[in-house]
């Protein structure tokens, strides 16, 4: 594992901790998209099915379990927690997730490395992760004055993707024969989706203003 991969994973971990802290400390999930969180849970469950039959390292196993449990925990807060659930604004969080999940499944059934259940589901999770942030970005755009922690959460998630790009470049340069086109192309699209957000996040930070995305 190289430093970019590790930094990427830690940024991902930190983004989730920031999100959980925000929800727990403010007892509010204002500005957080339940749709995106549900898509992430679907991404993690379909990708980490290999927990049941293959072992890479204790590190990987721990991180996989953490990602599954933490997204389940966020969903539980938004749907079930007595006070937090009251702050969820379902009228704003209206993205049609089937418009994301169905094309990803069709693409996974068509473009994959092996036509087996686990390989297709793994490929589906790669495609779906690339677009799972969209309901969250749409919700931020509808929210005037995004709260700082929610903004930081999305910024860290985007940062994690950018670090993974560096990780792949490093691996291409150092590991002969290493290639994974499906992951690279999806990951590049995923990172590109954040460009616009990064621009406004950095601008608001430099001007010391609350983040708000133009609609």
């Amino acid at each position: 594992m190289n430093i970019f991969r590790f930094a990427g994973d830690m940024t991902h971990l930190l983004s989730i901790i920031v999100l959980l802290l925000k929800i727990n400390a403010t007892k509010s999930c204002a500005g957080v998209s339940l749709k995106t969180q549900e898509l992430y849970l679907l991404v993690f469950v379909t990708r980490y099915l290999d927990l049941l039959y293959s072992y890479i390292s204790l590190y990987n196993t721990f991180m996989k379990l953490f990602f599954i449990c933490s997204s389940g925990c966020v969903i539980w807060y938004i749907r079930e927690h007595k006070t937090v659930s009251q702050t969820y604004d379902s009228a704003q969080d209206t993205f049609r997730v089937l418009f994301l999940a169905c094309p990803c499944m069709i693409l996974a059934l068509t473009v994959n490395h092996d036509f087996t259940v686990t390989e297709v589901l793994w490929t589906f999770s790669i495609y779906l992760e690339a677009v799972a942030i969209l309901p969250q970005l749409v919700l931020l755009q509808r929210t005037k004055n995004v709260d700082t922690l929610t903004g930081n959460y999305v910024f860290l998630l985007g940062g994690y993707r950018a670090l993974y790009l560096l990780n792949w470049i490093y691996r291409i340069l150092t590991e002969p024969g290493y290639r994974q086109w499906i992951v690279w192309i999806s990951g590049t699209i995923q990172t590109a989706i954040y460009c616009d957000f990064f621009y406004y996040y950095i601008k608001s930070w430099r001007n010391n203003e609350r983040l708000s995305l133009p609609s």
Partner: peptide, 10 residues
């Protein structure tokens, strides 16, 4: 397509 990719990343 080509060989299955490594699944050592998260």
């Amino acid at each position: 397509p080509d060989d299955a990719p490594p699944k050592d990343e998260l």
